[in-house]
């Protein structure tokens, strides 16, 4: 009796494991089958003809040209285009680009006798699109990843909302959807998706605009204070600026290698 039950349970257990691993194989199998036999695979994907491309996108922020007004315009432009919600509760706040003070943007570069101009100056901060991004290293699902052109992006479909990337980011550039963002979006841009609750989001260097040949929204609104270009191309405008001027980066001592430079 005991033996019968035991062997039955063993058999049942092994069968269950076997069956479930079969179904797992099935999942992988169909995944591949669809890609290879479905007609969708016969189509080809390509860039738009006027898409902007680079080897490593980067930004130069010319603080000499910045004003409060420009900063606020950039923030508005970005947040409107990307459907960034505005919550009354600070706890649920979401921001892609925002203005802060020098001492917050560069907490490791505290100077007792800092030049007066910098003390007062508004500094726009956003994702640094690091060449060696700690957030990408931390993400357990590759929901945040680095594209070939250096842009660090979010795949909102895949994010499980563990917020490991937010702990990993040394710049506080990431926000989490603590609740459904839709009711808090005032002027929805139908061309860009909103997000759902429970996923992380951040600046995407306007990847969706680059794809159709447009410069990032903040660059357009910056009146020349933000210059966008290919850091890998020695003839690009950003490289020319960096050759001529002394620039600093946020916490470059951490080795994350940010792609955003600030001219001071």
């Amino acid at each position: 009796m005991e033996n019968n039950r035991r062997s039955f349970l063993k058999f049942a257990g092994i069968s269950a494991v076997g069956l479930s691993s079969l179904s797992l194989l099935d999942v992988f199998g169909t995944g591949k089958a669809v890609a290879s036999t479905g007609q969708s695979a016969e189509g080809i994907y390509k860039n738009e003809d006027n898409a902007l491309t680079a080897q490593r996108w980067g930004m130069v922020v010319d603080t000499r040209k910045l004003t409060e007004e420009i900063c606020s315009d950039m923030e508005k432009a970005c947040h409107q285009i990307h459907n960034v919600p505005e919550f009354e509760e600070k706890r649920h706040e979401i921001k892609w680009i925002w203005e802060t003070e020098y001492k917050h943007a560069f907490p490791e570069k505290q100077d007792e006798f800092l030049t007066e101009r910098l003390k007062e100056l508004p500094i726009p901060v956003f994702c640094n699109h690091c060449a060696n991004p700690p957030c990408v290293q931390a993400c357990p699902t590759q929901a945040t990843f680095q594209r070939k052109d250096g842009i660090v992006l979010m795949d909102f479909h895949r994010c499980i909302g563990c917020r490991f990337c937010m702990a990993a980011c040394p710049y506080g550039s990431r926000s989490f959807n603590f609740r459904d963002p839709r009711p808090a979006i005032k002027d929805e841009n139908p061309k860009f998706p909103t997000r759902m609750k429970g996923v992380v989001e951040k600046c995407n260097f306007c990847a969706e605009r680059l794809a159709v040949g447009q410069a990032p929204a903040c660059v357009e609104a910056s009146e020349g204070a933000l210059i966008f270009g290919d850091l890998a191309n020695p003839d690009s405008e950003v490289r020319a600026l960096l050759k001529e001027n002394y620039a600093i980066r946020r916490k470059q001592n951490l080795g994350s290698n940010p792609s955003v430079y600030y001219l001071v």
Binding site: A138, T141, Q142, R158, C159, I160, G161, C162
Partner: peptide, 22 residues
């Protein structure tokens, strides 16, 4: 603690050895 607990199995579906969570 997960924002999207239904997607928990993404950790297995897209195994990522460089993530300590994996």
């Amino acid at each position: 603690d997960l924002g999207q607990p239904m997607r928990l199995l993404n950790v297995i579906l897209y195994p990522t050895p460089n993530s300590m969570l994996f």
